[in-house]
Structures are given as structure tokens and as C-alpha cells.
Write a protein that binds this DNA or RNA. Structure first.
Lengths: 234, 234
DNA sequence: AAAAAAAAATGATGTATATCGATCTATATG
DNA sequence: CATATAGATCGATATACATCATTTTTTTTT
């Protein structure tokens, strides 16, 4: 099912690394360790990149495209944690603990990924303290976002959660009031912890009230103030 | 309101450090940096130790007693993240990012805390790579637990969530099927993301069904299998 | 020990949300 | 082009849960 194909300009990944912010702190020798055993894979939209529950053998560097990170929960319900774009570093907490993948990653668009050997990655972590500390900052930032998400999902009701979800997409991820939705209604439901039917209903409510407009796969925030108001009031 | 009092045997905190697992990896010189400017404070049950929103100036080492870590959410609702006992290291993700406290910490029993200057802590993080990497493992473990909690709170209904909460208390935290509850019903509600009234109701349900027994502040798990069954079925 | 205050318990009621079934639309397929 | 298939939409219904009011129990204070 998975289409593997080397992409151009990434045979020797040193060029990519210069662009990937996390690796800019590394010396040429450390970069060489990362680069060793490294390979890149191209995925089509919809394909799964990491499967929750498998063992963690690589750290992933997202070179091109958009992916979703989600936890496969109870029954067939998913919890969509966030989206990622280049140059995100993927792999999850398991890389530094039990060597298990704790969340699934799937491509939302065509995607290029570089796979870095976990042993080589660890080697560099032991060679370069600043790299480790930079990583701690990175992980900590994600934790703060997770805290906010937890509060939103457990303490707000549907309209508030949907507002938070849309604010995440427009402000945090796409950085634009108008953006192409790479998510299905089901995936929006997974992002906001509600049923698909409810997600559809709330989006329609927002459209009726002039808060957003929907054209095919495009979504525009029309009334940012009202959206923030709904987010605040829960 | 806060009662400060130096506790015995902790004037020079080097002895405590030998017992605190996180510091055992440090050399005497590095330990000396941590120890510099360090001081300890004793709290009474109920007192607040860290207040969400204030600036992070210290990393806290829990020497004695039990504390709760919680996020002050919407309105006056709290989200209880977990409990901590010695020798937990507290401070939160803000220590490595925006120097803000992202969760509140309050004493559930009488508590002794050592305050480590954040600058000194960072100095050691730059001196000792293994210390940083150990910290990454520590933070990652917490993230995994947080993932599970998120799934429980967003995808299970009340009985399932309460089962998870009780399993956390008995298995993970107290390590015993029978334990003294240091939490009020409101705090159990905060732990399981439901209203106080509902928490009371579910606990009574469990008692009626012979799953637990409640005597004053003591709680005993009577039927572990059934508890796990309820947790699984959501 | 008595009084006051806080926490716990419980029933009645309202509401937010999930679920189900049916229809409609858009996209893929032969 | 016709058909199949998946996704989106929407109304009706059921239910999980919060809220409120009241009573009981426990804890604290005098």
C-alpha cells in the first residue's frame, strides 16, 4: 500500500538538514552521524506513516507536506492531537522511553519524510548538550499546547471546542484566516472530541451566523472576534 | 497564610540530593551548583505551593508529603493532572520555555519542598548532557501518561473515567488496593472531569456494586477485575 | 458538649450531545 | 455517461450528564 520513492535532492540529506532548524545547532561531525543510515520516503495523501503500538526505530523529519498526529482511542474513535508541516521532528515520547510509538501519523497531502536512525539520533544527543536542551524546549512547548487542549476538550462544550479547533487551524497552523481544509468532517470531529454529526452541525451553525464561510474544501474565518468570544465563553 | 519553617536535616541540602534520584547522576561540583541559593519551605495541608500564571523562578524538589498538580481552567473548574510524592521534580514545562508556571501545585498533606534556583538548574543542564537526557526521559514519560489521560477524559463516559481515576490512585500513585484518600469529592471530580455531584453518584454506584468500599477517608478496591472491565468498556 | 460550618449525599429537572435513519451531494469507477 | 461509493447533511429520538434544591453527615469551632 505504501509507495516508496526517493525524492530529488535528498539522496544525501545534508542540504535538507541545513534547512531543518533543529539540526542547525549541530557540527559537521554530528550532522554526519545523523546523516548516516538515513533515508527518505514519499507518501501519498491518506497513507499511514507511523502506526501506534509499533516499535520506535527512527526519528522522522518532515520535509514536505502536511501530516496529522492522532491517538487511536476507544473503539474506532481517534483523538487528533495536531497537524505538522515542515520541518517538524516526529517520533513521539516513546523515542526517549519505551521505544514504542504512542501516536499514529498519517499523510494529509503528498508527503516527504526523512527517517533518522534512533541510535544515531541518541548518539548526537550525548555528543551535544545544547541539542538535548533545545529538544527539551521543543518538548516543553508541545506540553503547554497539550495542557490548553486538555482544558478545552474537558471543560468547554461543543461550540467552544469547535471555536478552539478553528483558531488552532487558522492562527497556529495555517497562519491565515482563509485556508484549504485538509481535514474531513470526521477528522474535525476527532480534533474537537465530538461526533461527526455534531461537528457538521456546529460548522453549519457558524456558517449561518456569519462566523465562517465554507466553499468546498476552503474555509474562511469571517468574524474573528465572535469566534474568540465563543472560545472564551466555552 | 503560608507557614515557612526550615526543616531539620535540610539546611545544607546535599543529603537530600543523595536520596533524590534525579540528582544522583551529578558530580559533586554540579551538585554544588544546584545546592547554591537553595532553600526549603514547609507547607501545611491545603496551602498553595505554585500558582498558575506566575513567573517560574525555581525548580521544586518534593522532599516530603503529597501534592496535587492541577490546571485552573474555565470559570472555577480545575483539571487535576496528577499527584506527586517524594522525590518528584516540579516546575512544569514553563521552566524550559516561557518561564511561566503553567499549572498550580497545592499541598494535600504537610509538605516539605526544596526550591532550586532556575539559573543554577540550567547551568547544570549545560554542564551535564546525561542529566539533560535523563530529564528528557522524565518529561517523555509524563507525556505518555498525559496521552492516556486525554483519551480517557475525552472518549470514556463517567463510569469509565472514574474507574481510570481509581486505577491511577491505587495502582500508579499509592501502589496499594487500599489507601487513604487525600482528595475531596470535588478533587476526584477534577481528576475525572465531571461535576462533584456526578463523582459522588458514581462512587456510590461502585460501592453499591461491591467494587469499592468507603470508610471515612479510606478507600479499598474490592473487585479489581470489574474495575478494569468498566475502564475498558468506557 | 453544643453550635456552626463545611462536606457529602440524594432526588428532581433540564439540557447538551450522541445515535440512528434517511436524503443529498460529490467523487470515483466501469 | 451511468453507476457506484464515500462523504456530507439533517431531522427525530434517546440518554448521559450537569444543575439545582434539600437533607444528611462529618468536621471544625467555640
Amino acid at each position: 500500500m505504501i509507495s516508496k520513492k526517493q525524492i530529488e535532492g535528498c539522496e544525501d540529506c545534508r542540504e535538507c538538514m541545513n534547512r531543518a532548524p533543529y539540526f542547525q545547532i549541530l557540527s559537521p561531525e554530528e550532522l554526519e552521524v545523523i546523516n548516516k543510515d538515513r533515508y527518505s520516503v514519499r507518501y501519498k495523501a491518506g497513507e499511514m506513516i507511523l502506526k501506534q503500538g509499533t516499535s520506535a526505530t527512527h526519528v522522522l523529519s518532515l520535509i514536505d507536506g502536511i501530516v496529522k498526529i492522532y491517538i487511536e482511542g476507544i473503539g474506532d474513535k481517534n483523538l487528533l492531537l495536531n497537524l505538522q508541516k515542515p520541518w517538524a521532528l516526529l517520533g513521539g515520547p516513546g523515542v526517549h522511553t519505551d521505544r514504542r510509538i504512542h501516536y499514529s501519523v498519517a499523510a494529509l497531502t503528498a508527503v516527504s519524510i526523512c527517517f533518522i536512525d534512533i541510535e544515531n539520533f541518541n548518539k548526537v544527543m550525548h555528543m551535544n548538550c545544547s541539542f538535548s536542551n533545545q529538544l527539551i524546549g521543543h518538548i516543553s512547548k508541545q506540553a503547554v499546547v497539550l495542557f490548553d487542549k486538555m482544558v478545552s476538550l474537558t471543560q468547554k462544550q461543543m461550540h467552544g471546542r469547535m471555536a478552539d479547533g478553528l483558531i488552532y487551524l487558522s492562527n497556529v497552523f495555517y497562519g491565515n484566516d482563509s485556508f484549504e481544509m485538509h481535514l474531513s468532517r470526521q477528522e474535525i470531529a476527532d480534533l474537537t472530541a465530538m461526533s461527526k454529526d455534531s461537528a457538521i452541525r456546529i460548522l453549519k451553525d457558524f456558517e449561518r451566523d456569519g462566523i465562517i464561510s465554507l466553499n468546498g474544501s476552503n474555509l474562511s474565518i469571517r468574524d474573528v472576534d465572535q469566534l474568540y468570544d465563543i472560545s472564551r465563553k466555552g
